[in-house]
Simulated assay, not measured.
Amino acid sequence: MTLTAAPADLVFERTDELGTAGHEQVVFCRDAASGLRAIIAIHDTRLGPALGGTRFYPYATESAALTDVLRLSQGMTHKAAAAGVPLGGGKAVIIGDPATVKTPALLAAYGRLVDSLSGRYITAGDVGTSAQDLDVVATATRHVVGSNGGSGDSGFSTAYGVFSALRAAAEHRWGADGLRGRRVGVEGVGKVGAQLVGLLLEEGAEVTVSDASGDALARVLERHPRVTIRHAVLDAPLDVYAPCALGATLTPGSVDAIRASIVCGAANNQLLDSSVAPLLRRRDITWVPDYVANAGGLIQVGGEIWERTADEVRGDIARIADTVRAILRRSDDGDLLPSEVAAEIVAERLAAAGEGSRG
């Protein structure tokens, strides 16, 4: 296994917003025997050890993989701070198609990579990795959460957090009825989106879904025959757009196409960049910052570390709604964007932790 630092021109001298993100450590790994190609990014450890999932994805280029892991790890710092969880932000990506290159040997090699960081980074599941995969990773390191041997898959916890955030935003926008009778479009019905669909239907919402996978759509339709399927939901006539697939669907161009009044979902890094947030406000669209809404999975696996009960974890996740209410009230009172309020909360909590604990 070969470990290298990231090339300076791809991290330290970037010209995009990530150039000033302040990542503490970025490690590249290649394991010739198993075919592992992975990157781990540790963004900030002032609040605690960096925790974040492992995304297994067939990135077109190494540069695309690096950009994704840098953005995702920064998002994990924000997510933990906004949720009040004493953890730092980190993330990992494994480059390749999990359907063709994922093997026990590769997962074990990845576990050894995680272990080499001596607990500075704790890994969990993400797109392309499952609790079963984490069981294999756990054979090579104890710095893993969310395996079947631990608290298990975090899909429902993430969905429940998003649902709690959505309900709070709907009540803020429309009053006590909240989501009841509202048209919600869920983009992406994988292990999180599919769970969110069920919660929305139970709440009395009308649900429309889209997904690139026909199999995923068939599974949701079989379980929930009342859902409507569309090729795309972003521009559909909806009250709520819930992006639950990959990020960056909110762009200067796509904002003009959105017909919903609320955007809130499980996808990470929904904004192409920070310039999109004021465009949403200009169109009177309430956007709940993704790292606030989708913290349920982090809260679950963090609870595993601190040995909290399932009921305690569910209560912690439900309190995401309180955070959303506070952000939206503070946004209205101070004429600030919700993203600006959330960023202030994160900055306050990181500053309170102090530079002395970093690294």
Rank of each mutant, 00 (worst) to 15 (best):
R223H: 09
D215Q: 13
R223Y: 03
V255Y: 00
A218Q: 11
Y241E: 03
D215K: 11
A245H: 06
S210T: 13
A242H: 02
D235I: 03
L234Y: 07
I258R: 00
V233G: 10
R259V: 04
E206S: 13
P243N: 13
T249W: 00
R226F: 14
A248W: 10
T251C: 09
R226M: 14
I229N: 01
V227N: 05
A236V: 12
V233D: 07
Y241A: 03
G253F: 03
T228D: 11
A248S: 15
D239C: 08
V220P: 08
E206F: 14
R259Q: 15
V255M: 01
L238T: 07
R226H: 07
A248G: 09
D211P: 06
R219C: 04
S254Q: 08
A218R: 13
A216Y: 02
A260N: 04
S261N: 06
R226P: 00
R223T: 11
V227T: 12
S213E: 08
V233A: 05
V207T: 12
I258L: 06
R219A: 14
A236G: 07
R259K: 13
T251K: 02
A232L: 12
A236Q: 00
A245N: 12
Y241N: 04
V209R: 02
T208F: 09
L238R: 10
P243S: 14
S210Y: 04
G247K: 01
R219Y: 08
I258T: 04
A245K: 07
A216T: 02
S261L: 07
P243T: 14
A212F: 03
E206W: 13
A242Q: 00
C244N: 10
L221V: 11
D239S: 02
Y241H: 10
A232R: 15
R219G: 03
R230G: 05
A232D: 15
L234H: 15
A248H: 12
S261I: 07
R219V: 01
A212L: 13
V207D: 03
R226T: 08
L221C: 12
P237F: 01
L238C: 03
R226W: 09
R223E: 14
L238E: 09
D211C: 02
R230K: 09
V233M: 05
R230L: 15
I258G: 08
D256K: 13
A212Q: 12
R230V: 09
R223M: 10
A212K: 12
V227F: 01
A260D: 00
L234A: 14
V255W: 05
H231P: 08
P237N: 07
D235A: 15
T251M: 09
C244G: 14
A212R: 15
A242K: 01
D215H: 11
S210K: 01
R219D: 09
H224W: 14
R223V: 00
H224Y: 15
S261M: 03
D239E: 11
I229G: 01
S210N: 07
T208Q: 10
T208C: 07
G214V: 06
E222A: 15
G253Q: 12
S254N: 10
A212H: 05
T251H: 05
V233W: 06
